[in-house]
């Protein structure tokens, strides 16, 4: 029975390992809101805007991939492409900066 379904079993094990080790984009907490200086709800909105506006054009990046100032630099160009207004871009930047790489 096992040998009959060996390939499926093998793939299923890989899949479970991947899911088990996987990391999702962070959900803002009170600590994040204190660090960013805006409310948790605003950061949650930033996450939503980031996923919907940026993730529809390219793969998303974990906030810790870049430093806070690097996120600030990349934002104006991306804002145009994603057709975000200034307020939305600012909230996205705050969300990314709250867990960005140390400068």
């Amino acid at each position: 029975m096992y040998s009959k379904y060996k390939p499926a079993f093998f793939f299923a094990v890989i899949l479970l390992v991947v899911i088990g080790c996987s990391q999702a984009l962070y959900i803002p907490t009170f600590t994040d809101s204190q660090k960013a200086g805006i409310s948790t709800d605003s950061l949650a909105l930033g996450r939503k805007l980031y996923v919907n506006n940026c993730g529809s054009c390219h793969s998303l990046y974990q906030p810790e991939r870049y430093t806070g100032s690097e996120w600030v630099k990349v934002m104006p160009e991306m804002q145009k492409k994603a057709k975000c207004n200034d307020q939305q871009a600012a909230i996205i930047t705050k969300y990314l900066q709250a867990r960005s790489k140390q400068e």
Binding site: A24, L25, V51, G55, S59, Q62
Partner: peptide, 8 residues
């Protein structure tokens, strides 16, 4: 679902 934003 998204491969970065979500668990899978």
């Amino acid at each position: 679902s998204d491969p970065v934003a979500n668990r899978i």
